[in-house]
């Protein structure tokens, strides 16, 4: 990977996370559903296919999170990355944990599913296999209905063409959210 690519990946992530780590806390409303759509960049481990280097693929990601409580939910994602001569798709689902402070949300998740890799060298060839991802991200609300996913970073392991690939996926985009998770607050006992 070239130095500019490394910096493009690493610097914003590190700065953002360092910033968010120090934010003050405040109460916030928890949406029941969050629909995400945005840009993703996949660093695909194409060295396993005999390529000279990793392949950086631009693409998109859509996802849905169903929050069961302020802290736990179920997330599903579909993503694709396109380049020449590679195309990589993945569909994943799994548990998500969230931590809400002030107005922001930091989340982590482990997702399982399938991946499909298509390589076009002297003719297209496609292979599908299992996939697993773990990572997380940071969301920040801009209106009651919309949030911005500042960054989502995930390690994505795919197993296509009978080889395991260790990939990295970065995403950013918009979240539309609706519904509310009921938070059971302890009732105050009236004083006699």
């Amino acid at each position: 990977m070239s130095i500019p690519n490394r910096l493009a990946l690493a610097v914003p992530s590190v700065l953002l996370l360092a910033l968010l780590a120090g934010l003050p806390s405040s109460a916030q409303e928890v949406p029941r559903f969050q629909v995400f759509g945005g840009y993703s960049r996949l660093r695909f481990d194409s060295t396993t296919l005999g390529f000279a280097d990793y392949s950086n693929l631009n693409g998109g990601k859509i996802g849905l999170t169903f929050n069961l409580s302020p802290y736990f939910g179920v997330a599903g994602e579909v993503a694709g990355g396109w380049g020449s001569p590679l195309k990589v798709y993945d569909g994943l689902v799994g548990p998500q944990v969230s931590y809400r402070k002030w107005k922001g949300t930091v989340f982590g998740q482990v997702l399982f599913g399938k991946a499909k890799t298509r390589v076009n060298i002297n003719g297209p060839v496609t292979s599908s296999g299992r996939a697993v991802a773990f990572g997380g991200g940071v969301d920040f609300p801009v209106t009651p209905r919309f949030s911005v996913r500042l960054i989502q970073v995930e390690y994505l392991n795919t197993h296509t063409f009978q080889i395991s690939q260790n990939n990295l996926q970065l995403s950013t985009g918009l979240i539309y959210q609706f519904g509310h998770v009921k938070v059971h607050k302890p009732q105050k006992v009236p004083s006699p």
Binding site: R6, L7, L9, A10, V11, S13, V14, L17, L20, A21, R43, V97, Y99, V106, F107, G108, F134, G135, G136, G137, V138, V153, E154, Y155, L168, L170
Partner: peptide, 13 residues
């Protein structure tokens, strides 16, 4: 969570 994200970001870099 933050440590995991940080580790992934550093790994990417």
């Amino acid at each position: 969570l933050i440590s995991t994200l940080l580790a992934l970001a550093i790994w990417a870099g």
